[in-house]
Structure formats: C-alpha cells, structure tokens
Amino acid sequence: MLTHRHEPPLDPKVLEEAAEWLMRLSESELSDTERAEWECWKVSSPERDRAWNRAQLLQSKLGGLPATLAMSTLDRPSHPDRRRALGKLALLLAAVPTGWGTWKLAQQQQWSADYRTAVGESRELSLADGSRITLNTDSAIDVLFDTRQRLVRLREGEILVQTAPDTAALARPFRVDTGQGRMQALGTQFIVRELQARTHLAVLDGAVRVELAQSTQQAPLIVAAGQRTDFSSHDIGQLTPTDRNASAWTQGMLVVDKMRLADFVSELARYRRGFLRCDPAIAGLRISGAFPVSDTQRTLNMLVQTYPILVSGHLSGYWVTLSPA
C-alpha cells in the first residue's frame, strides 16, 4: 500500500510534469516516440517516480479523470483553461491518498446544500423569521424551519448568526447543528466554524447553549457574550475570551496581532484556490495588521513589502510558497 505520511513534499514542478503526463495519457494514445519519452521521464529521478506512483493511485481512485479536469478538446498547451486544469490535477497529486476523497466529499456537501459560497466568496442571507446568516468562504448550510424549531445545519465552513425573535406563536428555539453537536441561541449573535472534527464557537452577544452530539455525561454548557470555546462530539474545550477581530471577515478583512506566519498562511489559504505553503524556516515569524481576503494577491504583496518574505508561484499561480527573502 502506498503512503506519503512521512515523505517530504514533492517539487511542484515535478507534480506539474506528472499532471501533464496523466492528462496526455487520458486524452489519447501516445505515439511510440511520446511513450518512450514518458517511460524515460518516469525513471529519470526518485521524485518523478514518486510523483507517478501518486498519479497511478489517483487514477485508480478516480477510475479516470473527473469531468471538470478532462480537457481533451483543449489541445493547445498554452490554453488558460488547460493550465488551470493542470494546476487542479497537480494539487490532487500533492494530496494523494486523501485529496480526492476530501475534494469529492466537499463538492457533494457544497452542491447539495441549501445555501453555499465558493472559495473567496461571502454571502449574507435573511431568513424567514428575520434572522440573518453570513456565510464565509467555502461554506455550506441547510435551513429547516418547522413547527418545533428553527434549525440551521452547518455542513462546512464558517457562519455568523444574528438571531431575531420568533414571530410564530410557539416561539421556536433557534439552533445550529454541526457534526459535533448542537448550539441553541439565547438571544444571540455568534460565529460557528467547523474545523478538523471540532466546532469552534465565538459568542459576540447574548449566550449560546452547547450540547454535544455523542456525550451522555457532559452537561450542556452556556457560553456567554465575549467567550469562545471549541468542542468535539465527546468533549468541550476551555472557555477563553473572544478575539475582538473574530468577525472581521464579514467586512472582507483578516485582522491579526502577532500571529505566527504559518497560522496566518493557513487562514489566508481558505480564501484562494490552490495551495499556499509556508517554508518552515519562517513559520514562526509574527504577523500583525489588517489584510484584505477579497484580494489575496494584494495581501501577499503587503507581506513582501513589510516582512523579510519572498513569494514564489508555480502551476500558473495554483501553488505559492512563502520563503525567507
């Protein structure tokens, strides 16, 4: 069984080469000359051999390329759509064996949801009862109002919730569900984000009652305004003060104060397509300031102008690395 858990990351140029060969093989039969060139490429270096092993594993998972990456009609190598498709394919190769399953699941969750946003997009909704929901980048929710409750199901991503008093006679509770538990609003404005099998909750106004999905021993927790916590389906983390800039994303900004560059890059990556990587040599560099998430390239330019950072791009901008200047 192939595994990449302990292997160093592959050179993006090699991944792009593997993506190109995989796409060419999926489009048509290679000539004898092309096939000989391909065979020579595969064995020319250990990195290329690793990259092609990933390509084979990805192909076995997919049973062929997904339709969105099958670019057989774009026979010009410089065609921008083909370049974008190669970038996406190279990113999948970088993430094998988990990348395809994660990408496919995210697509299914996004496109079957009642409301969704694309990467880099935000959206504000007004619900039937007057409550408002703001979806952050790459987020998806379902909304179910019935005679018993007002329910929002967060499938993926992050939302800001501002509840309104129920106009129905029964005064139905307003609840937000994630895979880890249920939050009931108590006259509230709050932020919910699902990340790495944990739900992150920050209460801006009022209070929120948290009930875990699978714990029968953990009593429900009331989180008051100015507090935040995170929880899994079995345990609730400590209460800490809410970051005063927690809702800055609703204004299109990422506001940080002495944040590690590695953590900053992880946050910024949510707002752009592709792969954004931080060299471990500068991972601990502390970043402060207000940065626009609607223009991530401008944010990267701001970092270069302010800090000893060099930004280099590959795969038509799909793969970007921050390294020491």
Rank of each mutant, 00 (worst) to 15 (best):
H6P: 02
H6N: 15
A19M: 05
E29N: 12
S31P: 02
T33W: 01
E37I: 00
W38T: 10
E39M: 01
W41K: 15
K42S: 07
P46T: 10
R50N: 09
L58Q: 06
K61D: 13
K61A: 11
L62R: 09
A67Y: 00
L69S: 06
L69F: 03
D75G: 08
P77S: 04
L91I: 13
L91F: 01
L91S: 14
L91G: 15
L92P: 01
L92V: 04
L93W: 01
P97I: 04
G101S: 15
G101W: 13
T102V: 10
K104Y: 11
W111N: 11
D114E: 01
T117G: 00
V119D: 05
G120P: 08
L125N: 01
G130P: 11
A140Y: 03
I141K: 09
D142Q: 02
L144C: 12
F145D: 10
L151M: 12
G157A: 00
I159K: 08
P165A: 05
D166R: 05
L170N: 14
R175L: 14
R182N: 10
Q184T: 15
R193D: 11
L195P: 08
R198E: 14
T199H: 04
A202W: 02
A207L: 01
V208G: 02
I222D: 13
F231H: 08
G237V: 00
A246F: 04
T250M: 07
T250D: 05
D257F: 04
M259K: 15
A269E: 09
R270A: 10
R272M: 02
F275A: 15
G284E: 13
L285S: 00
G289I: 10
A290Q: 11
T296D: 08
T299E: 12
L303P: 10
S312K: 15
S312L: 08
S316M: 10
Y318P: 00
L322E: 09
L322A: 06
P324Q: 11
